[in-house]
Amino acid sequence: MFQAWRNLYSKSDNAKAYSLLSPALFLIILVMLIPMALMLSFSSFTQVSMMEIDFTPTFQRYIDFFEKSLLVSLLIKSVKISFIVTLITLLTAYPVCYYIAFYVKKNKMLWLVLLTLPFWTSYLLRVFSWKIILGTKGVFNSTLLGAGIISEPLTFLMYSEEAVIITLTHAWAAFALLPLYVSLEKIDFSYIEAARDLGLSKFEVFWKVTFPLSLPGVIGAILIIFIPTVGDYVTPALIGGTEGRMLSNMIQAYFGKINNIPLGAASATIMLTTVILITAIVSYTTKRLTQRLS
């Protein structure tokens, strides 16, 4: 019996592949699929009272979501904040990666390590340090006050959308650096020389050759930043205040103090769907853009 299994195993590549994957598959089923299924099923229930849930399946929670203008506006705000964070990160990380990939000759690794050095501390600590920098009596305000540039502390710095955007941008920048750097580093310099040879100026070469060839890295960076920041709730909770609140903070509240688990689950599902849709649109349009550019 054992021998038969062994023969089957050694002959089948699929069996080998699955057995190598099995620990990961097991983990994914345990921590992803099951919670996901639970979330989906909870979103179809009804919270009757504090302790009581009606398990009759219904779509009413999704209708509830879109009837509550607060939730819809929070969803839009979450997407907007993420979008701005992604854009700023790309605009700042791309030139840096371009510089390292094409102009740094020696010790490229050292540059990358130094750039990612701040990210060796915990995410939470970094968020707190922004609180210290941006606060009413923070580094920023006391410097400006001390220098006599302002007479009162700038209050919009803290507990605002801007504060959330600044903190999230800084917190996720490192994750954009790596895919961008890898895709730029991979570009053979002879493509750039060939384009110059064919009569294009440096500026045109960037838009016709370098940028299209680095698009895989750009897409990677967009997704890596956009997906986690849409759902981030630590930063808005700590330094967003009421102004900088995002949908994820509301979802947390539904599962916690508001105690409406079905509506929370429905909100989370809607958010997940939104992220998936946006991801699909980004991938599709960038692919289109590549063809358009060339």
Binding site: S190, E193, A194, A195, D197, L198, L200
Partner: peptide, 16 residues
């Protein structure tokens, strides 16, 4: 390079 009356065939061809 873009202002010269020359064109080049690269060693690795550099086909975009």
């Amino acid at each position: 390079p873009d202002k010269r009356p020359t064109n080049m065939v690269f060693q690795n061809y550099a086909i975009f």
